[in-house]
Amino acid sequence: MSRAALLVLADGRFPAGGHAHSGGAEAAVRAGRITDAASLEAFCRGRLHTSGVVAACVAAAAALGVDPGELDRAADARTPSPALRVAARRLGRQLTRAARATWPSSELDALASRFPKGAHQPVVLGLAARAAGLGAPDAAYCSLYEGVSGPATAVVRLLGLDPFDATGVLARLADEVDRAAREAVGTAERVVTDGVGVLPARSAPLLEIGAEAHAAWPVRLFAS
């Protein structure tokens, strides 16, 4: 297993489309719920422990070789917002492209054939990790970290938040990301034996409502 491969996959500049998504932060900023570093931290923490953990479990399970179709259906059931399903599939499709170009793999080719318009991004992330020779913990970490770093980067652009403050938020969440990654790997191992029903289903109501509100705006900076 190559530690450097993890850095490639986790790099915010990995060209898989993430830069155009705020992870719900744009809606929360417009609604006045994110105004500073403290509220950004609370937002990221809430996201980390809800949709973030679910995505990490899916990614880790995919990295362990669980059937992508089943994981994709499980992700659909855990993503009631159609706007978020569209965003997840769009990002999945972009990641499929980037990962296939970076780490050619028959599994990724098969995924692209099966989901020409994209599978849920965490499913693709797990398979990308496999293709890169990485494991379930790496997939979980990548998923969790981009789940909080995306909103933090977006809020720097949206609010003009001091980038040092935004980075400080990510550093303060590190212990929680570690714990969530351990949980995700444990859950993913159970998915291998017990099926996708054991995936968590934690949700954050305002992420979903906000995503739908955001999708209806005529003018916005971020795709989601």
Binding site: P15, A16, H19, R97
Partner: peptide
């Protein structure tokens, strides 16, 4: 229309996946 997250130059140069799609 491709959404660019406030950075069109990223979408046309550094991370072109959304435009390719």
């Amino acid at each position: 229309a491709v959404e660019t997250g406030a950075c069109p130059h990223t979408a046309i140069r550094d991370d072109i996946s959304a435009n390719l799609e």
